[in-house]
């Protein structure tokens, strides 16, 4: 019994130190980043696209747009393929095939992002440049690379959501004479809706936060991208590209970029959490 108490105490200390570590990081980022936002007035910092650190102009609007554009593109690709894959794995593929395919997709999550980026630079970028024009390094290239990177997240959570739909729903629909596709579309997807939304939001969080692969394929120009073939810079790449050199106000501005990212990702995670809680509740009512 005594041993139990000791172990419980040790675990509590570990857990608390992990949480306090997180809290410290949060405090640090905000302490470093907030002053410049307040000083320049949030409006100028967030809504000006003028980023010239040497001349003291820090406006991250073009990067906010860059992050949003790349993430939106990634979600289009990730959702089409991820959800499609989840539907096939749970509704159409024979269980033996699904048992192989799902782990394979999940393995994609284990590939380091720099490898995705490198493959993007070597294969995808020249392809876009030669076939579609533009510099190749583009919103499109970043979207495709990120879309592939979020596939494991989107697929596995969507699969879980679809599998959690009670078997009786499916049986009832089939018994009423609906085809498999009709059942999937009208019953299964509806019943699993909140789980799928959570999958999309978690995938989005991953796409917003990804850095290395994006630096390699997005081109990093500080301009609001005019088309999907134009290069762009995301919030994460801005921090990673310039932090090695930054000092003074520039450094603060990069921390403020971090604050912006932090808030965006917190919002996404909170939404995902509340959506998945709701889906858990819905399930328990049945």
């Amino acid at each position: 019994m005594k041993k139990d108490k000791i172990i419980a105490a040790i675990l509590t200390v570990t857990a608390l130190s992990a949480i306090s570590g997180l809290a410290l990081i949060t405090i640090f980022i905000f302490r470093e980043g907030m002053p410049i936002i307040l000083r320049t007035g949030g409006g100028e910092f967030f809504l000006s696209a003028d980023w010239r650190p040497r001349d003291g102009s820090f406006g991250i609007f073009s990067m906010i747009i860059g992050s949003l554009a790349v993430t939106a593109g990634a979600m289009v690709i990730g959702m089409i393929f991820g959800l499609g894959l989840a539907i096939v794995l749970t509704q159409f593929a024979p269980p033996s095939l699904a048992a192989v395919l799902k782990p394979v997709v999940e393995l994609l999550a284990g590939i380091p992002s720099v490898v995705y980026g490198f493959m993007g630079v070597v294969t995808l970028v020249p392809l876009i440049r030669n076939r579609l024009g533009g510099p190749g390094l583009s919103v499109l290239a970043a979207s495709i690379v990120l879309g592939i990177m979020v596939l494991p997240t989107v697929t596995s959570i969507s699969v879980d959501a679809l599998q959690a739909v009670p078997r009786s729903f499916w049986e009832g629909s089939i018994a009423l004479g609906a085809t498999r596709w009709q059942t999937t579309r009208m019953v299964m997807l509806k019943a699993a809706r909140s789980g799928i939304v959570a999958a999309a939001i978690l995938g989005m969080g991953r796409a917003v936060g990804e850095t290395m692969a994006v630096i390699m394929v997005a081109g990093n120009s500080i301009e609001i991208p005019g088309s999907i073939l134009a290069p762009t810079r995301t919030l994460t790449s801005n921090i990673a590209l310039e932090m090695g050199y930054a000092s003074g106000a520039h450094r603060e501005a990069l921390f403020a970029t971090g604050v912006t990212l932090f808030v965006i990702i917190m919002i996404l995670n909170c939404v995902a959490l509340s959506v998945s809680r709701r889906s858990a509740r819905e399930r328990s009512f049945r």
């Binding site: 630079v121 440049r129 510099p135 390699m216 081109g219 990093n220 120009s221 500080i222 590209l241």
Partner: peptide, 20 residues
């Protein structure tokens, strides 16, 4: 100009110019 592509190393510049 702000529209110029920015790469983060000599190697990345080289890779890009090699293909474009």
């Amino acid at each position: 100009p702000a529209g110029a592509i920015a790469q983060e190393s000599n190697g990345a510049v080289k890779e890009l110019v090699k293909g474009d």
